[in-house]
Write a protein that binds this DNA or RNA. Structure first.
Lengths: 123, 123
DNA sequence: TTTATATTGATAAATCATTATCATAAAGTC
DNA sequence: GACTTTATGATAATGATTTATCAATATAAA
């Protein structure tokens, strides 16, 4: 991630603009609007670089290949639309769930995923 | 799933005895204690059959290949030990999380996963 | 500009989980 | 026990995602 290329700029801006976890394919599709002809390998390479330098984080959802979002957001969870498969960021968190664990277990973190229909898919 | 074989009996009993979501590999290892020489293909075939007949369900966790647990349990969530990677069943559920979704979204279900150390790994 | 070299795009290769294949073995009926 | 057919185990094949390769191109410093 040494040089600033059109491709990398496009990928970064797409992630900032869409502001939701994106799959490599989603990144490619959106970034191609800015840089036609971009290849999927560039997306994978750039996402890997962004994660390594700490400016993006992988978002893993059950049964899904990883998506990526920009780093620096505070603790939050995600909504997965069962129609369009887009993933959206949710604000806030109900709190601590360590009470759910059996006694003797030490809970360090948690993940919550909501499933349903997003606004666009309900319309 | 027509015939009752030693392999199928072993797989069913292992799932009942361990009472937690098991990966095909975990099933194989445990079932081999009852039927030495069992092959992984038999595990995959049997798990698929159990799911099709409705007596087992896949358990998907973020970034993990599916595990399987016996069907018929009431709504619950899971704990994933970050040391031994075993997944445990949690009892109960804090409730409804649809308030977390943005207005205009329709929440249909949710998943909660706790991460930390299980009792054995803390000892 | 020229130049050194990092980056790109196309695609082959690698990974990993799961499924298909097939000869052999076992279940269960007669 | 003999027989018909399903099930098994070993392993090749598949599918999906991600990474490696490499010639051509673009970046940015001199």
């Amino acid at each position: 991630m040494e040089r600033s290329t059109r491709q990398r700029q496009a990928i970064r801006s797409v992630m900032a603009e869409l502001n939701r976890p994106l799959s490599p394919t989603e990144v490619l599709e959106a970034a191609r609007h800015k840089v036609p002809g971009m290849g999927i390998a560039t997306v994978y390479r750039t996402l890997k670089g962004l994660v390594e330098e700490g400016s993006a984080v992988p978002v893993e959802l059950p049964g899904e290949a990883p998506r990526y979002e920009l780093a620096g957001k505070k603790h939050h969870h995600h909504f997965h639309c069962s129609k369009c498969s887009k993933v959206f960021e949710l604000e806030g968190c109900p709190g601590d769930f360590s009470f759910m664990a059996p006694s003797g277990f030490k809970t360090e973190r948690h993940e919550i995923v909501l499933y349903g229909r997003c606004t666009d898919c309900l319309a």
